[in-house]
């Protein structure tokens, strides 16, 4: 048994320490967003955020996660209360089949946490490890740029709210 902190909640997980995080998220914690794409760290579908940076959960064994915080797409927001990155992807209709999108979103979220105004080249570089087969790339790039703007607005709003209190 080990303890895994996902989206702010602690889970007791019965998995060997060499089990990749992906299978624990999907199989034990029953989360959907992190996807199996290759299991080899070549496509990015399984990306989640660990302590603020994006990692490929299919090649991240559980032993590396002790004491760390895992965030999945489910932890960012919901259909009724979408996070800025989720709103951005909906508003840009940035999906066709959508299978690669959660990994892309987590990578983009991690980028935006560190760099709130990334250049186009920085966005492309961040997404370099991620494959999309439907050819939704143009929309994905637009969605990440939109998310940056939304997050800025949200930050500004939060600041205003705080100063108003």
């Amino acid at each position: 048994m080990m303890t895994l902190k996902v989206n702010g909640r602690e889970h007791q997980v019965d998995a060997d320490p060499d089990t990749p995080l992906l299978y624990v998220l999907r199989d034990d914690i029953k989360l959907n967003a992190a996807k199996f794409g290759c299991g080899l760290g070549q496509c990015g579908s399984c990306a989640v955020i660990v302590d603020g940076t994006a990692v490929l959960s299919c090649v991240t064994p559980m032993i590396l996660l002790e004491g760390k915080q895992v965030t999945t797409l489910e932890g960012l927001g919901s259909v009724s209360e979408p996070a800025p990155i989720q709103r951005a992807f909906i508003e840009e209709q940035a999906a066709q089949c959508g299978y690669c999108i959660p990994g892309m979103m987590m990578r983009a979220q991690a980028l935006l946490l560190k760099n709130s105004k990334p250049t186009d080249a920085e966005i492309r570089a961040a997404l370099e490890q991620h494959l999309c087969r439907c050819g939704t790339h143009m929309r994905i790039l637009r969605a990440v740029r939109r998310a940056a703007r939304l997050m800025e607005t949200a930050d500004a709003a939060a600041t205003t709210n705080r100063s108003a209190q």
Binding site: P17, D18, P20, L40, T60, I63, L64
Partner: peptide
Amino acid sequence: ASQTDLAGATIYAGACASC
């Protein structure tokens, strides 16, 4: 077989050995 008492061995088994 990995010596799972060693952290390095477990990391190797989970992150490296598959390739």
